[in-house]
Computed example of a mutant assay.
Amino acid sequence: MPVRSIGLPADDLDRSVTAFMAATPVTRRWDVERDFDWGAADANRLTDGQRSAVRFITFIEDHLPGYFALYSSRFPLDADTDVETFLLNREIYHFTVRWAQEEDSHARALFRYQVESGISAAEPLRRELAEEGRKQFSLPHEHPAALFAYTLVQEKATQIYYQNLKAVVGDPVLAEVLNRLSRDEARHFTFMADMVENYLHHYGDSVVEPIREAIAQFRMPLADTLRGYWRWALRIADTAHYDHTEAYEHLVRVVRRAVDAPSDRVDELDRFVRACRALPADSR
C-alpha cells in the first residue's frame, strides 16, 4: 500500500528542502554538454574491469524514471489526496524534481562518456538501457522513514563507489565525470540524512525499527531485475575496492547524532549493522 503522507511538519520539510537547494546555487551546477572535454574521452586508458564498471553504473543511473515513479506513487499529488497530506507531499516534491534532474544528468553524462570514449555506439546503448529501463522498480518499505533510510544508504554507497572508482581510472575525462557525480550523491545523502533525523526528532525510538528493516532488506537498485547483477556487482566492487555496507555505518551515525541519549533500540541497530558488515559479501 503506498505511503500517503510524509508525516512530518511542513516547516521541517521546508527547512530540509531549502538547505538542499541552497547547497547547489546556479553558479555551482554543472552541465553535461559544456563542462567536460568529450573529445578527449578515451576508453583505451581503462582496464576491462573499469569499462565494465562504467557500463554497470550507467544502467543504475539510467533507471531514474523508475525511481521517480516510486516517489510519485508513495507521496502522491492528485485529486484523491487530502489537503493536509497534499501540502506535505508538495514540499517533498520540491526536492524530488531537483534530485531527479541531477540523477538524469548523471545518466546522460555516463551515456555520453560511453559513446565518446568508444565503449559503445549510441543506438545499441540506447536499446540496452531501454530494455532494462522499462522494468518496474519497487521497494518493500511502507514507512516513509524506512524509504528515506534506504535512499540514504544507497546514495552514500554510490558516492563511495564513485570516489573509489575515480581514484583508479586512467582517463581524466571519466575521473572528472565521477567527481561531479560523487559530489551530487554526497548532497543527496545529506538531504536523506536530514530527513531521517527529522523522523527521529519527531517520533523518537518508534522509527528505529523501520530504519532497521531498511538495512535488513537492503539491496542496491536493480539487484532483482538487471541480468547478471550479482556476478557483475562483485566484479565492479573488486575493480574499485568497494563494499556497499560501508554506507550502513553512516546511517548509524545519523541515528546516534539525532537522539538525545542512546537507547536499547539504537544500540541494537548498531549491533545489527555491525553483524551485517561481518557477513561474507555473497551472503548479504
Rank of each mutant, 00 (worst) to 15 (best):
S5T: 08
L8N: 09
D11S: 06
D14K: 15
S16E: 13
A19Y: 10
A23S: 13
T27L: 14
T27F: 14
V32A: 03
A40L: 07
G49E: 01
V54G: 10
V54T: 13
H63D: 02
P65D: 01
F68R: 06
F68N: 06
P76G: 00
P76K: 03
T85C: 06
Y93I: 00
V97L: 10
D104T: 15
H106W: 01
A121P: 03
P124S: 12
L129A: 01
L129P: 04
Q136F: 05
Q136R: 11
F137M: 10
V153D: 09
K156G: 05
D171M: 11
P172R: 01
P172M: 10
P172V: 06
V173Y: 04
V177R: 03
A186K: 06
D194H: 07
N198W: 11
E213F: 03
E213I: 01
A216F: 12
A216M: 15
P221D: 11
Y229S: 00
W230G: 15
W232M: 08
L234G: 01
A240N: 08
Y248C: 02
E249W: 12
L251Y: 04
R257Y: 13
A258F: 06
D267K: 08
D270A: 15
D270I: 11
V273R: 06
A275P: 07
P280K: 02
